[in-house]
Design a protein around this nucleic acid. Structure first.
Length: 125
DNA sequence: GCACTGACGCGGG
DNA sequence: TCCCGCGCCAGTG
């Protein structure tokens, strides 16, 4: 097992792999990076642009499917509009805009998880 | 080194 | 199922 890793490089790879039309959670990204307790770091990285460009940040939501209320997008409704443009239904609740993870969530297979581990191992990150 | 912060998540009630 | 409390941990000043 690689003893030194770069969490942000891993997170960038995983985030870019979230399919069009699907939403993933912060914890899910962290888990696939091999750091299941680092969900907060995923949010931090996205907020501060630490993952570079080409990251579908709008597809990342919290474990309940709630969209980030943070003003990290150009406009308040940007994240919701991007998701809807991909065919994802976003419904308004008291807690904010929410996607149905049961239907539109990214449900990883064990194979996908193992594949990421291989990629990290190969690239020594 | 210390305290505080936050696009978070889980487990118990 | 829904709250709520607590744990989490890299960054930041």
């Amino acid at each position: 097992m690689s003893e030194y890793y770069d969490f942000y490089k891993r997170a960038a790879i995983v985030c870019r792999a979230v399919p069009y039309g699907k939403a993933a959670t912060y914890g899910q990204i962290a888990l696939l990076c091999g750091k299941p307790r680092n969900a907060r770091q995923v949010g931090y990285a996205l907020n501060r642009g630490r993952l570079g460009s080409g990251i579908p940040a709008h597809r990342i939501v919290n474990s309940r499917g709630i969209l980030s209320g943070a003003a990290a997008f150009e406009t308040d409704d940007m994240q919701r509009r991007l998701l809807e443009s991909e065919g994802i239904t976003v419904e308004y609740t008291e807690d904010g805009w929410r996607v149905d993870l049961k239907r539109d969530g990214w449900h990883n297979t064990m194979d996908e998880a193992l594949r990421f581990r291989e990629i990290f191992e190969e690239q020594k990150i």
